[in-house]
Design a protein around this nucleic acid. Structure first.
Lengths: 141, 141
DNA sequence: CTATTGTTGAGAACGATTCTCGTTACAAGG
DNA sequence: CCTTGTAACGAGAATCGTTCTCAACAATAG
C-alpha cells in the first residue's frame, strides 16, 4: 500500500496542474467574449499548442462546475464559456463581435422572485441575457 | 401550363393542409408544457399516427417562423416548443413536470432597454425565463 | 527513484437536427 | 371527376457538437 493511507491531503480529481489546463486558463483570461469549446480548440492549434479536443471539453466543463466560468448557449446550439466575476450577474452580449458586458439588475431579481411566488412556484432560478449590437458594431461602415 | 398563371392566390409554400400538419397542430394545442420534436414524434407514433421525423422537425420550425410557437432550449440541448399567446411574454417553467405559465414583466422590459442603452448597445433583444417547481411538484410526498 | 492514480488524446459512439431525393397527395383548372 | 404542377412527405444518409473508451502518460507523494 502507498499514498491514500495517511489521511492528510484530499488529493482528489481535478487538482493536478498540467500543461493543457494552464493553456486553457490562460486563453480564457485573455478572452473578452464568450467562446465555444471548438473555438478554443482551433485557437490553441493555430498557435501551435497541441491539446486534445476531449481535454478541452473536459476542462471547460470542470471549470464551470467549479464556478470559474459562466455558460451560455448560442442560437445554433453551441455551448459558450467565459471567465466572469463571482457575484451573480447577467450578460449584455454583442451579436456581431461577441463582446460581453456584465450587468446586474436588482429589479429583475425582485421581479423574478415575486412573479414565481404569485404562481406558487418554489426553488426558482432565472436566465436573463441581453443581446444587441455594441457601440462599435452599431456604427455604419 | 397550369396553376400559378392567373395571379390570384399566392399559393406559396407552407400553406397546404395535410394530415401530418393537422396532427401536429392538434397535439400542440393540447399541450400545457414545452415539448421537443422527438417527444412529439414518439407521442404521435404511440397513438398510432404515422408521421416522419423530418416532417415533425420541418413543421415545428415552420410554425415557429410563422410566430405560432415559442421556443426554448433545455439544459441538455434539445429545442422545446409550445403554443403561446401572441403578445410578448416570458415563461415560468416547472423543472419537474414542465408545466408552463406565461408571465409578463414590464419592469424587465424597461430594465433591459435601459441597461443596454447605458452601454451603447442597440437593437437589443432579451431572453428571460424562470425555472422552478410548480405548486404541485413542490408538495412533499 | 518508484509507485500511484489523475490526465490525456485519438478515435469511436452518441444524439439531436438537417439534408437528399424519389414518392405521395393537396388543390386549382379543365 | 380527372389531370397536373408542385408542395409536402419520409426513410435513410449526413452533419455536428459533445461525450465516452481505453491504453499511454505524467504530476506528485513517499
Amino acid at each position: 500500500m502507498t499514498a491514500r493511507t495517511s489521511g492528510s491531503a484530499p488529493a482528489g480529481p481535478g487538482r493536478r496542474d498540467t500543461r493543457q489546463r494552464r493553456l486553457l486558463r490562460d486563453q480564457l483570461s485573455r478572452q473578452e467574449a464568450f467562446v465555444s469549446a471548438q473555438q478554443m480548440y482551433d485557437d490553441l492549434r493555430a498557435s501551435g499548442d497541441r491539446v486534445g479536443l476531449a481535454t478541452v471539453y473536459r476542462t471547460l466543463q470542470a471549470m464551470t462546475e467549479a464556478g470559474e466560468l459562466d455558460v451560455l448557449r448560442s442560437d445554433d446550439g453551441e455551448v459558450l464559456y467565459r471567465q466572469c466575476g463571482p457575484q451573480h450577474h447577467h450578460h449584455l452580449v454583442c451579436r456581431a463581435c461577441g463582446v460581453t458586458v456584465e450587468v446586474d439588475g436588482p429589479a429583475v431579481e425582485r421581479w423574478a422572485t415575486t412573479a414565481a411566488a404569485e404562481h406558487g412556484f418554489t426553488e426558482v432560478t432565472h436566465v436573463v441575457e441581453l443581446f444587441g449590437l455594441c457601440a462599435t458594431c452599431s456604427r455604419p461602415s
